[in-house]
């Protein structure tokens, strides 16, 4: 196996007396699609926030492509090639879908200097092409000229993830890509997202509550409980883990379906 793109050692985060994360040790190889499960408050979002630099870990280290990024500010981490999307889509409501995407594309391409930002035009030929390509890739081109404030939830999610993919990150962290989406739409939404991300050869880590989605899209599953990883392996193995069943997913019919699929 090639060297890991992300390697986390003994990572912990303490808020006063509360351990939001403790002793997390995980290593993710290039181009793997990793699902993260766990109940609310299990530390999934804290984990993502520490990797993206939004939270500074209390202890432990994070290495990205062999470089230590522990405690760096999120701007710098973004520049190195880690991007993220949000549980609640973070878009610019007073811009159109195209303008949203073009802004993301222009930032992704601009040289990271002060002069670079003043001298780079927003709508350079390259960033317009990149924005149009991403709109096509995420199948939201028909909404191109709509104001982002007026978009339906699913399209907002796609736009949010599309914007995160601008600038060609090598690792993308998706915080509940299907939250707020109806059960019927979830699967097709995930399909659009995953085929887009795979075509860009992106390593993906996504948080998800729906075990069907996890089984359908993850190659590997991390199960979080009380701030730490209690199970790590293939979806079938992790979801069959008795601790995972009692603490997270519950012993549901779904497991029988999973077992039947393996027969």
């Amino acid at each position: 196996m090639n060297s890991p793109i992300l390697s986390v050692r003994n990572l912990g985060k303490r808020f006063g007396l509360l351990f939001a994360a403790r002793d997390i040790t995980v290593s993710i190889p290039v181009q793997q699609t990793v699902g993260v499960i766990g109940a609310n408050g299990a530390g999934k979002t804290t984990f993502i926030n520490m990797i993206t630099g939004h939270l500074r870990p209390t202890n432990g280290t994070i290495h990205f492509e062999g470089r230590d990024i522990t405690g760096l500010p999120c701007r710098q981490i973004k520049g190195m090639g880690i991007s993220r999307s949000f549980q609640v889509a973070q878009i610019f409501p007073s811009l159109t879908v195209f303008e949203n995407m073009c802004t993301a594309a222009a930032i992704g391409r601009a040289p990271h200097t002060f002069i670079g930002h003043v001298c780079t035009p927003l709508r350079s030929r390259e960033s317009v092409v990149e924005a149009e390509t991403l709109l096509e890739l995420f199948q939201i081109a028909p909404y191109r000229d709509r104001l982002a404030a007026t978009l339906p939830q699913g399209i907002r999610k796609l736009l949010d993830i599309g914007m995160a993919l601008a600038g060609s990150p090598r690792l993308l962290l998706l915080d509940e890509p299907t939250s707020g989406i109806s059960i019927e739409e979830k699967f097709s939404l995930m399909q659009v997202i995953m085929s887009a991300l795979n075509s860009r050869k992106c390593t993906v880590l996504f948080v998800e509550h729906d075990m069907d989605i996890i089984e359908g899209f993850a190659e590997r599953v991390l199960a979080f409980y009380d701030g730490t990883v209690i199970a790590d392996g293939t979806p079938a193995a992790t979801l069959a883990d008795p601790r995972v069943q009692t603490l997270i997913s519950g012993p549901k019919v779904r497991c029988a379906v999973g077992a039947a699929a393996h027969v």
Partner: peptide, 30 residues
């Protein structure tokens, strides 16, 4: 300036500072 990236980011900064930071730009510097 309004057509440049730094100038055009005015509306994004007004709309959603968090996202601008996560896109790799310093809001306070802008």
């Amino acid at each position: 300036y309004f057509r440049s990236l730094a100038g055009a980011l005015a509306i994004p900064v007004r709309d959603n500072e968090l996202r601008v930071e996560f896109m790799g730009m310093s809001v306070s510097r802008l």
